[in-house]
Amino acid sequence: MFPIVSKRPLNAAGTVIEYVLKAPLVAKKCLPGQFVILRLDEYGERVPLTIADYDREAGTVTIMVQPVGQTTRMLEKMEVGDALADVVGPMGKATKIGGQKRVCVVGGGVGCAISYPVAKGFFEAGIEVDMVAGFRSKDIVILEDEMRAHTTNLYICTDDGSYGEKCFGNAKLEQLIKSGREYDEVFIVGPLKMMKFTALTTKPYGIKTICSLCPIMIDASGMCGGCRVTVGGETKFACVDGPEFDGHTVDWDELIARNSFYAGEEAKQMEHICRITGGVRHG
């Protein structure tokens, strides 16, 4: 079992929750960009989540979760002292850090939870990091202090202008590029549509653009093939070949369709969520 060591909301609205989990085998080796598979209990599904932070000595890993699906909504009901049935990893390839002089990391909403450890990884390697963090509104902003501490420049923008600049993340990125900032690489994490459009922004400038994908997967070891994505016309498995790919050659529309394949089933399952009391299931 993998106990929850701490739990806290990351913003005023409570839309994103941070969990620190005891998982020594994962904490020993994990690097920015990698993910874990977790399973809540015997009845749970296997769900991939990016590792947001880790403490090798304490043997813990941090995940940041937006409770939207069945598993994440049930996880929301679990507290410090409860334990997850499984936390396995590190899965996937780590972010390629090194060789870049300046990068821009773009995070969209809860995607900032995934782009933050990457930004931190670049920054700690001595690379200049501009970070564009886009949110819908002020009440859902997360990790501002952490991002500020681990980037050269942090640009927060909101769709409604309630905090930071009123613009979309990709507009801010384009503004930075046009202002003469030269990036060796742009790294994007967020909802699929946001990544698709942000990658389009950098394309005319020919800037290397990496996106972190999170398709549907089961084993995360290359076995099920459910996470296959088309990149540059080739079939890749996001779990072992990724999760980071060239954002300019990912077939976004195919991925968007594939990721919504089980939406109907999930909606049905959600109706049954009343089965659950306090995160403990009475099967």
Binding site: Y43, E45, I218, C224, G225, E265, E266, G283
Partner: peptide, 20 residues
Amino acid sequence: NEFLTRINLMKAYRDDYDTP
């Protein structure tokens, strides 16, 4: 592999398991 893993390991054929 995917189809069978959903069914056999994850027991998706049973109502009491979450995997769709």
